[in-house]
């Protein structure tokens, strides 16, 4: 027990985290490129068109993975923010702060691809139904979190205030997910759920899962890279940074 504890806290030390992340980023980036290539090939070339929507449904191979990512990243950000708030682990604060921009980008992409998909299928870019509105609120939560971080000068107070915002916003995630079940929405229900067989052809949901994995690998690489820069900035006066400045290329 005590051994594993030491192992775990090893990487909460900034220098160790910095080195480990530096080694992990290329691996995740490579995996992401491979998975994206596979997913794009399957989604755009191999998968057949849909019987109702023709080729316009191919937007699903971005839309669904990025929409899932937006929710997963928000929950992850809130967990890190909560750990930082309660146990005062600096690396958790760094991780929460580093996830926010990527989460915001995925949320924006979910809204953008949704609008471009909605126009040809529903006939409108945007409607104020529960699913679309709650996803828009998620974007504002990400942006609000980033703005709060930027607005408060003192680092500790900024981390605390934005962590509270992140935790409060978690209630929005189940609302997004269940909105299509709880209320009448223009948005259709879920095609892929944990409990039931997917209501789509195998090649289609497999491709969605591959794209989802690709998005995960991408997110991990990008978030670790951002966290690394953040650590460097915070610890610039530490001895370990000076050592790496002499030995390492950027």
């Amino acid at each position: 027990m005590s051994r594993t504890r030491i192992q775990w806290f090893h990487f909460t030390a900034p220098a160790n985290f910095y080195d480990l992340a530096g080694r992990l980023i290329p691996a995740f980036a490579l995996l992401s490129v491979i998975l994206f290539a596979m997913g794009l090939y399957l989604g755009l070339w191999v998968a057949p068109p849909d019987y109702q929507q023709g080729d316009s449904y191919r937007i699903i191979y971005i839309h669904v993975p990025v929409a899932w990512m937006s929710m997963f990243l928000y929950v992850l950000m809130a967990i890190y923010a909560g750990i930082g708030l309660i146990w005062r682990i600096k690396m958790a604060e760094v991780m929460a702060k580093s996830i926010a921009p990527t989460g915001a980008l995925f949320t924006f992409l979910a809204l953008w691809t949704g609008a471009l998909w909605g126009r040809p299928t529903w006939g409108v870019y945007w409607v104020w139904d529960a699913r679309l509105t709650s996803e828009l609120i998620l974007l504002f939560l990400f942006l609000g979190y980033m703005a709060l971080h930027a607005a408060i000068e003192d680092r500790q107070r900024a981390a605390n205030a934005s962590a509270v915002l992140a935790l409060v916003g978690v209630v929005n995630v189940p609302i997004i997910y269940f909105s299509v079940q709880w209320w009448n929405t223009l948005h259709q229900g879920a095609s892929i759920t944990v409990t039931q067989a997917p209501t789509m052809a195998t090649i289609m949901w497999v491709t969605i899962l591959i794209m989802f994995l690709a998005c995960w690998m991408y997110s991990i690489a990008v978030v670790l890279a951002r966290a690394r820069t953040e650590i460097l900035e915070r610890e610039r006066r530490a001895r370990w940074v000076q050592e790496r400045l002499e030995s390492e290329k950027p």
């Binding site: 794009l40 755009l44 068109p49 023709g54 080729d55 316009s56 191919r58 937007i59 971005i62 839309h63 990025v66 921009p101 990527t102 980008l105 924006f108 992409l109 953008w112 691809t113 471009l116 998909w117 126009r119 040809p120 991408y218 990008v222 890279a225 951002r226 690394r228 820069t229 460097l232 950027p250």
Partner: peptide, 30 residues
Amino acid sequence: MGGYWPWVWGSYAMMAGVTAVEIAQLRFRR
């Protein structure tokens, strides 16, 4: 894309653009 090219490629192009900008911004900052 069966006549749906503005919507399909508009989505994929935005995905590519956003990720490219994020990576470039991270590199620049570091």
